[in-house]
Amino acid sequence: MENTQAAEDARKGAIEYRVSYLDPHSGHVMEEQFGNLAAAERFANAQLKDADAWAIVDAVAVETAVSGSTPERSQQLVA
């Protein structure tokens, strides 16, 4: 089954989850990438330590066959 899933992901383009968040120590917006939504959401929630904190989880279709194309995105605001 794993080979079937890998083949389907390669055909459709794989999905990765990117968490953009405000780093309170530096004041910069940072980004981390994850292979599954649950891990991305746990990381995003861990970044919400004060009232000014925020994090966004983006689901991004990773294009493997065509370079230079724009990936599709969907966003979920966590904070």
Rank of each mutant, 00 (worst) to 15 (best):
M1H: 10
E2F: 12
E2D: 14
T4C: 08
T4Y: 10
A6G: 06
A6H: 07
A6I: 08
E8G: 00
E8M: 14
A10P: 00
A10D: 10
R11D: 13
R11Y: 15
R11I: 14
K12T: 12
G13Q: 04
G13E: 07
G13H: 07
A14E: 15
I15L: 11
Y17V: 04
R18M: 06
V19T: 03
V19S: 01
S20V: 01
S20L: 08
S20Y: 09
L22D: 04
L22K: 04
D23C: 06
P24E: 09
P24A: 12
S26G: 01
H28A: 10
H28V: 07
M30Y: 05
M30N: 00
E31W: 03
E31T: 05
E32P: 02
Q33R: 03
F34Q: 02
F34E: 02
F34T: 00
F34K: 00
N36I: 03
N36Y: 04
L37I: 04
L37Q: 09
A38N: 12
A38Q: 13
A40Q: 04
A40T: 05
A40I: 03
F43Q: 04
A44M: 02
K49T: 15
K49Y: 01
K49P: 00
D50A: 15
D50P: 07
D50V: 10
A51Y: 08
D52K: 15
D52W: 11
A53L: 05
W54T: 07
W54I: 03
I56T: 08
I56Q: 10
V57P: 03
V57L: 10
D58Y: 15
D58C: 09
A61F: 11
A61H: 13
E63R: 09
E63L: 08
A65T: 14
A65K: 15
V66H: 12
S67P: 03
S67M: 11
S67V: 12
G68T: 07
G68E: 11
T70E: 15
P71Q: 12
P71A: 14
P71D: 13
E72A: 15
R73P: 07
S74W: 06
Q76T: 14
Q76W: 14
Q76G: 12
L77K: 13
L77T: 13
L77I: 14
V78A: 01
A79P: 09
